[in-house]
């Protein structure tokens, strides 16, 4: 471990690090940048097209951000550890398939009612746990472990679906996403509940703090007696849990499960987390950052639709956003080798 080269402190004991106004401002700016960007986009859109500010449009934005938010919340815990989870789409496919196949549907005679979403979330959590166990147990990098599980999950889902779309016929499950409460679709309320729970886990539980401790310095965390491997498996399980909830909502929202229901979700998820300011190196950011990141991506998508820009451009813009966000947040020094 390299000790930060002895920067001799001018300020005395107990004072803040001897930094000028400018570095302080820059650091603060980095903390607030995502929020400022979000605000800027909103203002610009409101000016360019007043329709943006209409309540109906704002509800639309919230509704379309619900599922991405839940996915991104799950991924936040992984990225905060300095790992990555590429299995988002696989776990989500599995979840939607289970909802569609176990609830009343047009492909078989099952009608397990509320058991369907419950089992879907359980299965997704289990697959998340598999991610963690494979990654920690076989000691292979998370991006490889989760790449494999991505396709395992997708394979299971597509095999069960047999390549066709299966429609959900149970209206109570569809209401999970569609029913409105205080003018907002239920999906939005679920997303808000997930967000608050995740925020609590992140800030108030030992597990949440350990995730950030591992991201800040795994060796130090280990020296402090933290059971790093267990925390890692738990984080992947928790991520799977959130993907499972997102899967249930996706099945409810679209009223079906099909082979491509999860396509593009990974990309969107990573973009949102990273744009929100959670560092890929781990230890920085959090669920609140992710909320802002999801809103940036969601509002931008909505704005492009309002302005008549091709939806395909949006994907390209997301890619550029990842690069830009990461490049801005990375402290460039030749201290370690990046693979």
């Amino acid at each position: 471990m390299t000790r930060p080269t002895a920067q001799v402190s001018a300020a005395g004991r107990g004072a803040a690090a001897p930094e000028g106004v400018w570095p302080w401002l820059r650091r603060r700016a980095a903390d607030w940048a995502p929020a400022v960007v979000l605000l800027g986009i909103c203002v610009a859109l409101a000016v360019l097209n007043p329709a943006f500010m209409e309540p109906r449009n704002l509800v639309r934005v919230a509704n379309s951000a619900a599922i991405p938010l839940i996915l991104a919340i799950g991924a936040t815990f992984i990225i905060a550890m300095g790992s990555i989870d590429l299995s988002v789409e696989g776990v989500m496919s599995l979840g939607t398939m289970i909802v569609a196949m176990l609830a009343a549907n047009d492909a078989n005679a099952n009608d397990f009612g509320w058991w369907a979403p419950l089992l879907a979330v359980l299965a997704a959590s289990a697959l998340g746990a598999v991610n963690g166990v494979v990654h920690v147990g076989l000691r292979i990098p998370s991006f490889m472990a989760t790449l494999g599980i991505w396709f395992v999950g997708r394979g299971i889902a597509n095999t069960a679906l047999g390549g066709s779309a299966v429609r959900v016929m149970d209206p109570s499950i569809r209401d999970l996403a569609l029913h409105r409460m205080f003018g907002m679709p239920f999906a939005v309320w679920i997303a808000i509940a997930c967000f608050l729970c995740a925020l609590g886990v992140e800030r108030l539980t030992r597990f949440g703090r350990y995730v950030f401790a591992i991201g800040g310095g795994e060796d130090i965390a280990e020296l402090s007696g933290i059971a790093v491997r267990r925390v890692r498996v738990m984080a992947f399980t928790l991520a799977g849990f959130f993907y499972g909830i997102a899967a249930v909502l996706a099945a409810a929202q679209l009223g079906q499960s099909n082979a491509v229901i999860a396509d593009g979700r990974l990309f969107m998820t990573v973009t949102a987390v990273v744009v929100g300011g959670t560092a890929l190196t781990g230890g920085e950011g959090g669920v609140l950052n992710t909320l802002i990141g999801v809103l940036i991506v969601g509002v931008l998508a909505n704005g492009m639709v309002l302005l008549g820009v091709s939806p395909y451009v949006h994907q390209a813009v997301q890619g550029l956003m990842i690069i830009g966000a990461v490049a801005l947040s990375t402290r460039r020094s030749r201290l370690q080798f990046v693979k």
Binding site: T2, R209, A213, I220, A221, G225, I226, G283
Partner: peptide, 25 residues
């Protein structure tokens, strides 16, 4: 330790009680 072994991304209190949170949970 000679090379400082605090987690820079955490608060001072969190560092002091890292791994010992059970007492406050």
């Amino acid at each position: 330790f000679q090379e400082q072994s605090l987690l820079l991304n955490m608060s001072v209190a969190e560092n002091i009680y890292l791994g010992q949170e059970a007492a406050f949970t």
